[in-house]
Design a protein around this nucleic acid. Sequence first.
DNA 1: CTTTGCACCTGTTGGC
DNA 2: TGCCAACAGGTGCAAA
Length: 271
Amino acid sequence: MPELPEVETTRRGLEPYLVDQIVTEVVIRNHRLRWPVDPDLVRYLNNQKILNIGRRGKYLQLYFSTGVVLIHLGMSGSLRVLPTTSPAKKHDHIDLILNSGNLLRFRDPRRFGSFIWSQHPCEFHPLLVGLGPEPLTSTFDKTCLIESCRGRKRAIKTHLMDSHVVVGVGNIYANEALFQAGIRPTRRCSKVSQKKLSQLVTIIKKVLLEAIEQGGTTLKDFANVDGLPGYFSQKLRVYGRKGEFCYQCHSVIKQIKQGQRSSFYCPTCQK
DNA sequence: CTTTGCACCTGTTGGC
DNA sequence: TGCCAACAGGTGCAAA
């Protein structure tokens, strides 16, 4: 999936096609996503108007007067708006048929994504309660990151990817931000200076904003809602560059594993 | 409380 | 060329 820029790009792309549309039919072809899709979704959404489309972290929110659909794209999910006549292919798990003659199609080969109905105001949904601040708002600032790092022994990269600390920083942008901040991904949180953490906050915001402006990185399964590829992948400075030369100092980029995830860094530029 | 590791899947890639 | 292991954008949860 998509990291936050791709999710936000998807949200913006969908907005004009979805807002004020009435759902006339719901087709669920496969219930087996990360959490089983509620069969009653068909009943809940039938003839309901989509009032708005929001985002919290990497969760997209479709607002109805009766509740909210929370959509997560997992690792390989995507949402497309297509004509109602478009035949479903393999891995096209859910369609919301709209009165415009279009449909919203949820596709997810790996099925790590989710499509959840929440009758409560969605800020109170258990999956959203306890999420950290949005990286692109002022709620995520240097004080916030410095506080969260105080006394923490774990690696800064693992910390950045913890949604309780800040939402929306995935593997690609954690690597990229740490490279640009000159911080080695393995560095313990408590050992990173306040100055560096402050810079890191600024860089995270910059990296995510740039990626959104570019329409999101395209890797493997992601295509934006118009089906066109994004462009940001050309700009990646370390991610996926193991064995290649650092653009800044020409050292060889290293790859290691942290948790189950790949980290890439320049041994010279990142200390 | 903090941290780590697993589980959930399918499709693609790279090494032999 | 073909086969198979390793790997891929995430994250909630159990266990240490």
